[in-house]
């Protein structure tokens, strides 16, 4: 019965139903070409941070990234900004002419030691999100790839965070209501890599016979100290920022409790006054006085910054852990080799 009914639905209907239930984004499928392009652009300009546009197709729960192009390094100038927009249009037009998918699906950017969790990133995300329903940000870390790690990450903002960001209410109450913690700001999406059969054939041919590759050398590098030092530096900076944020909160809470105490004393005074007035047969005064400065609600500081810093700190911790883990294996390997 069902099978008989299904073909009778028109294409439009099918399209409409698909539009209604957009499946959640599960996988980002990247072409090897895009990976190489991103890496080339990011490493050539490292340590300057660069960005570029990702092009591709949105197919069901998979976002295919089939091409990309780099942006020139941005400068703080109105005129150049306009030129940048022109550049983007020109590039898209040119790529369309040679049959490249010219559908923007997000952007990529390089980062230094994974310090990408900033308000700017969220703002860019919101900007993109306005135009494209589904977009991702691919983050590449050139500093990590010197250790033989392919530090590629696909991120997006979680839906609940976006909602909250739009309403711009980052107070404790709202966050408790949504049950949102700092872990829930970014969602990491698993990355798949695909290559055309042609590329795969070429690469199989071209793979060198040598049993050792560059990434092996990089991985066996014993000196991780510079990397760790910088990581620790960043971590310490972040911890300072975090404690600043926490002081802000403490200040807020102290002010709040002081205000509440003031309110209480005022209320008691007013009540006893009212009692006296009642005894004297006069009208009681109202128990609230909006004009009094102690009743003005104190603004609660936004939690966004502290959330982002927390994310950052946990990111550094993860990096330290993974690098330390690798160093352990290396050291034990060295020891074993030396004993032999």
């Amino acid at each position: 019965m069902f099978t008989a009914a299904a073909p009778s639905r028109s294409f439009l209907q099918v399209a409409a139903t698909e539009e209604a239930v957009a499946p959640p984004l599960r996988v980002v499928q990247i072409e090897g070409l895009v990976i190489l392009k991103i890496i080339k652009h990011c490493t050539e300009f490292s340590p300057a941070l660069v960005t570029g546009q990702l092009l591709g197709l949105d197919v069901g729960s998979v976002l295919e990234v089939t091409n990309c192009f780099p942006f020139p390094i941005r400068e703080e100038d109105e005129e150049i900004e306009a030129e940048g927009a022109n550049y983007q249009l020109e590039m898209m037009r040119c790529l369309r002419e040679v049959n490249v998918d010219n559908n923007t699906v997000g952007w990529y950017q390089s980062t230094l030691l994974g310090s990408f969790q900033t308000v700017e990133l969220i703002e860019t995300f919101m900007n993109y999100q306005e135009n494209i329903r589904r977009c991702v940000c691919i983050i590449y870390d050139p500093s990590k790839s010197n250790q033989g790690v392919l530090a590629l990450k696909a991120l997006k903002l979680s839906d609940s965070f976006m909602e909250l960001y739009r309403s711009n209410e980052f107070n404790g109450e709202k966050l408790r209501e949504k049950n949102l913690s700092w872990v829930d700001i970014f969602e990491e999406i698993p990355i798949k890599v695909s290559n055309s059969a042609l590329v795969s054939a070429f690469m199989t041919e071209l793979e060198a016979d040598s049993p050792v590759t560059q990434s092996d050398y990089d991985r066996l590098q014993l000196s991780t100290n510079p990397f760790m030092e910088r990581n620790m530096e960043f971590l310490i900076e972040c911890m300072d920022d975090l404690s600043m944020e926490q002081q802000k909160f403490q200040f807020y809470y102290r002010n709040l409790s002081r205000q509440q105490a003031q309110q209480q004393t005022w209320l008691q005074k007013r009540r006893s006054e009212n009692m006296a007035r009642k005894a004297a047969g006069e009208e009681p005064l109202p128990e609230e006085d909006p004009s009094n400065p102690i009743f003005k609600p104190l603004p609660e500081p936004s939690r966004l910054d502290s959330f982002l810093i927390t994310n950052q700190v946990s990111n550094y911790c993860n990096q330290i852990n993974s690098v330390a883990g690798q160093s352990f294996s290396r050291l034990y390997l060295m020891k074993a080799l030396h004993e032999n």
Partner: peptide, 30 residues
Amino acid sequence: MVEAERVGFEILKTTAVDKLPSDMEGMEAT
């Protein structure tokens, strides 16, 4: 191709890779 070796031929020479190798897996292979 030093650049390709950095990325890993395992990723570049097959038509589909389900996930990127993690740090420790890479270390193990090396």
